[in-house]
Nucleic acid binder design. Structure first.
Lengths: 163, 163
DNA sequence: CGACTGACTTAGGGCAACGCAAGTCAGATA
DNA sequence: TATCTGACTTGCGTTGCCCTAAGTCAGTCG
């Protein structure tokens, strides 16, 4: 576990009300949202495919896609195949794509702790073929464990409790 | 986005039914479970503290703690302070602690995309003081982006697909 | 002994997520 | 013109998460 430092040290004296984790959870709170984003990473773009591949019903799929677009994780574009009418395609935005490490970390944890054989699929580095993992590294390049970390409150030297 | 390889290449032909991500989401599906694990990483061990600091009600706290213990993410230990009766302490197991990269990645994403100032708290490497980030790295040490990755199904296709 | 504290449990109710079944609607096809 | 397909929407009932308020119970303190 990380060590609490500075104004954070007495855990009794602050509440994590501005927690980015809580905010992130509010955005991707539901199972269906997670699965839709997973599908987007797998290259799915069309409504029916999202619903079928994520294994969710069409009403939920429609509601969730709309929310994800509203929140800026997916972009709704029009595209037209020859001889077809224009249809929407849903693609990850930069913001949505930024969730990749989080999904990869959850997937990796599930592989390690919730499956018998290490999980059905893996990521490999295309250039060198080596397996890819999520790691914690500091800016100096050291690989770190949770116990090596300090939790700090940047730009705050006074004694006011955290928000 | 990762490239699909081998038997995974035509996305129409497989369903992600054994997805480790879906399994992981089933374990930490709720907001309250996430927040309790966050608190455990912040060093909270006692029932009332969990409920208050995670901002959830006592009934939910009790139910969620029991589930997390049943699933093996938290361990329920007895401890006794002098002049106090024995009380339970909830501590992260190795399995629970393994979620740290996932929570850190979500927190980092929230810092980047959901806050104005980069978020209220940060992790630093205790030894060198440098900020810590979640990264994707291959076993050869290369830092990678989602677009550099191949998704492979181990044991089902060539391990290093031809380019 | 009675009050108090910490760790819960019980009762009751609101609301959100979800699934199923069916309907709508626009544009391409026959 | 009628049919078909893809992308949804509408209606309805279920389940599950969560809250508040109140109660329980064991061990400690005065």
């Amino acid at each position: 576990m990380p060590r609490l430092t500075g104004v954070l040290a007495p855990r009794e004296h602050w509440q994590a009300t501005a927690c980015s984790l809580a905010k992130a959870i509010d955005v991707v709170s539901t199972r269906s949202a997670f699965l839709l984003i997973r599908e987007a990473f797998y290259g799915t773009t069309r409504f029916d495919d999202f619903a079928e591949r994520a294994g969710i019903s069409e009403p939920v799929c429609a509601a969730r896609l709309r929310e994800l677009v509203d929140e800026g994780l997916l972009a709704r574009e029009q595209y037209q195949e020859p001889g077809q009418r224009a249809r929407p395609a849903y693609r990850l935005t930069e913001k949505g794509a930024g969730l990749f490490p989080a999904l990869a970390a959850l997937m990796q944890w599930g592989d390690r702790w919730l499956t018998e054989n290490g999980g059905p699929v893996k990521f490999r580095h295309r250039d060198c073929g080596e397996p890819v993992e999520v790691e914690l590294r500091c800016a100096a390049g050291h690989r770190t464990e949770p116990g090596d970390l300090d939790l700090v409150r940047p730009g705050h030297s006074g004694s006011h409790p955290a928000r």
